[in-house]
Design a protein around this nucleic acid. Structure first.
Lengths: 157, 157
DNA sequence: TTATTTGCAAACCTTTTGCAAGTGA
DNA sequence: TCACTTGCAAAAGGTTTGCAAATAA
């Protein structure tokens, strides 16, 4: 999706909520859409400090992430170890996550069948499904290999 | 599962890890298995203060939850809003969760098919699957009804 | 003009940690 | 006996908030 379209939608959203388009909000939106990675609030804050542009405080980063999240521009996902990371979502198909327990790498996958089964499961319990989180944790290929070769000796208790 | 068996397994586990069975650990184990609900560390701490028995500090609650979790006696799940709740798991089949976004009620369901698809999805990405979190969020029957009847008027902005 | 936003620093909340005293095995 | 535990209080880590000054509309 073209970034100008994202910006347009953001402006619309802000208008609808009686919020203002400030340089800070605009810069955060741009930065969030400039990466394809998952990032924490703190990482985003670090990017904004290092790079050129309107200064943004930590508080504003958090406040804006909340706005972006509410507007469906970003989605947060907890990494399973207490952390929270975000990703931009406009123009991306829904997907779920695979998290490597060793290196922290986050991969993505889609499975339409699982989605359908979720709907069925929710309906069976009388729930109206709004969203879901599916996070698979394990070891990515490289980390698993390391474990298999190095794991032997350290496994002895 | 009989609680005496749980205790027995706990003793075994502690022995295997060169850990000691203290009154605090025993009391926490008992309390955790006395409820069928999900609870936060703080809730558990509150229960222990209110009820009779060996006193347990907050630090010990956290430390013991870690031990219980490592031993497979409890499992933690994040509620999606930054919180963390636990449940005892010994003698219970694996299940996933449905969380009501309105009243906070947590329901459970099982779906063997979804589990299999997860394994496949992980394998397809080269991951060795260790665990997963599947949390469906939505509105439970009663809350959804309320929304449908009351929602109309408040929807006007 | 004025309601909204920002930055700052302090407050918050939950969880973790260092340490000295206590205690299961 | 002695390695492991506990309680305490302080620290940590991430996020939120009150307030006065700044600003988009």
């Amino acid at each position: 999706m073209k970034h100008s379209l994202v910006v347009e939608k953001f402006e619309e959203f802000l208008k609808g909520e009686s919020l203002k388009l400030t340089p800070q909000r605009r810069r955060i939106l741009d930065r969030v859409y400039a990466t394809h990675d998952h990032f924490s609030a703190d990482t985003l804050y670090a990017w904004l400090r290092e790079e050129e542009g309107p200064q943004v405080s930590r508080a504003t980063v958090y406040r804006t992430l909340e706005v972006l999240s509410r507007g469906g521009f970003v989605a947060g996902l907890d990494t399973g170890d207490g952390g929270m990371v975000y990703e931009h979502v406009l123009g991306h198909e829904h997907h779920d996550h695979l998290v490597c327990m060793s290196c922290g790498r986050i991969d993505e996958f889609q499975d339409h069948e699982i989605e359908e089964l979720q709907l069925k499961a929710a309906a069976a319990k009388g729930f109206t499904l709004v969203s879901h989180v599916l996070r698979l944790s394990g070891f990515c290929g490289p980390c698993q290999e390391k474990r298999e070769s190095q794991g032997k000796e350290s496994e002895t208790k």
